[in-house]
Computed example of a mutant assay.
Amino acid sequence: MREPVDALLIIDVQVAHVTGPGAVPSADALVAQTTTLLDHARAAGALVVHVQNDGAEGLSDAPGTPGWDLHFPVVDGEPVVRKVHDDAFADTGLTELLAQRDVGSLVVCGLMSEMCVSATARTALARGFRVVLPRDAHATTGIPAMNGADPVPAEVVSRVAEWALGDELESVPHAAEVSFRPS
């Protein structure tokens, strides 16, 4: 059994990205695995942080639009960190929040694998956090065929993003393998 983790960061699991025509291809699986992590973290009394992207005007996740809403209801005491950059640490106060709670390790899950999940995990690793990334709890869209190049399936984009984070990252196959400690 792996060492328990202090906190769960749910990155950009917003209505526009997991429901309707703009949903990532594996939205149902992502929601199911994130639910597993969320249930385990809450049951253990661990810190849960919801990260919400403030998309630009006209985008499906622009503040105030139906797609901007978080998919998972926030429970009292669970902070919501709003961001405008891929990296959830950039200009948000997330570092201070985690320091106040004495967090040394965290699980990162959510969207998009090669963008916000990767940028946030990379900064967390650089700042000395132990980072766990369940393979079945982050997702993205594929890359369409362009300029004669073949399309790249979403699953491949996610795996490459995970691989690019390097050896310091603790990648686990399944969200169910993660345990949490109380904050």
Rank of each mutant, 00 (worst) to 15 (best):
4 P>H: 00
7 A>K: 07
7 A>Y: 05
10 I>Y: 02
10 I>D: 00
11 I>A: 01
11 I>L: 11
13 V>S: 03
14 Q>I: 05
15 V>L: 11
16 A>V: 04
19 T>H: 13
21 P>T: 05
21 P>V: 06
22 G>A: 03
23 A>I: 01
24 V>P: 04
25 P>Y: 02
25 P>D: 06
25 P>H: 07
26 S>L: 02
30 L>D: 04
30 L>N: 02
31 V>T: 06
33 Q>A: 06
34 T>S: 09
35 T>N: 01
35 T>H: 00
38 L>D: 07
38 L>S: 07
40 H>C: 09
43 A>V: 14
43 A>W: 11
43 A>F: 11
45 G>R: 15
48 V>L: 01
48 V>I: 10
49 V>W: 06
50 H>Q: 13
53 N>L: 08
54 D>A: 12
55 G>P: 10
55 G>I: 05
56 A>H: 12
56 A>I: 03
56 A>W: 14
59 L>F: 04
60 S>K: 00
61 D>S: 05
63 P>G: 01
63 P>V: 06
64 G>H: 14
65 T>G: 03
68 W>S: 11
70 L>E: 07
71 H>D: 02
72 F>K: 01
72 F>L: 06
72 F>Y: 08
73 P>L: 04
73 P>T: 15
73 P>C: 09
78 E>S: 11
79 P>W: 00
80 V>T: 12
82 R>N: 14
83 K>D: 08
84 V>K: 15
86 D>G: 02
87 D>C: 12
89 F>M: 11
89 F>I: 05
89 F>A: 04
94 L>Y: 09
94 L>E: 09
96 E>V: 10
99 A>P: 14
102 D>C: 15
102 D>N: 15
103 V>A: 11
104 G>P: 13
106 L>K: 09
112 M>I: 15
113 S>W: 05
113 S>K: 10
114 E>I: 08
114 E>G: 15
114 E>H: 14
114 E>P: 15
115 M>R: 10
117 V>E: 08
117 V>A: 04
118 S>Y: 08
119 A>C: 14
122 R>K: 15
122 R>L: 13
123 T>V: 11
123 T>Y: 05
128 G>K: 10
128 G>Q: 09
129 F>T: 08
129 F>P: 05
132 V>N: 02
133 L>F: 00
135 R>F: 00
137 A>H: 02
137 A>C: 03
139 A>P: 06
142 G>W: 04
144 P>M: 02
145 A>T: 14
145 A>D: 13
146 M>R: 14
148 G>V: 11
148 G>N: 10
149 A>P: 13
150 D>K: 12
151 P>I: 01
153 P>H: 04
154 A>M: 03
156 V>C: 04
157 V>L: 06
161 A>Q: 08
161 A>D: 12
161 A>F: 01
165 L>N: 13
166 G>T: 13
166 G>I: 14
167 D>A: 15
168 E>K: 13
169 L>C: 11
170 E>L: 14
171 S>P: 13
171 S>C: 13
173 P>G: 12
173 P>R: 00
174 H>K: 15
174 H>L: 06
177 E>V: 05
178 V>S: 08
179 S>G: 05
179 S>R: 02
179 S>I: 06
179 S>W: 03
180 F>K: 03
181 R>D: 10
182 P>D: 05
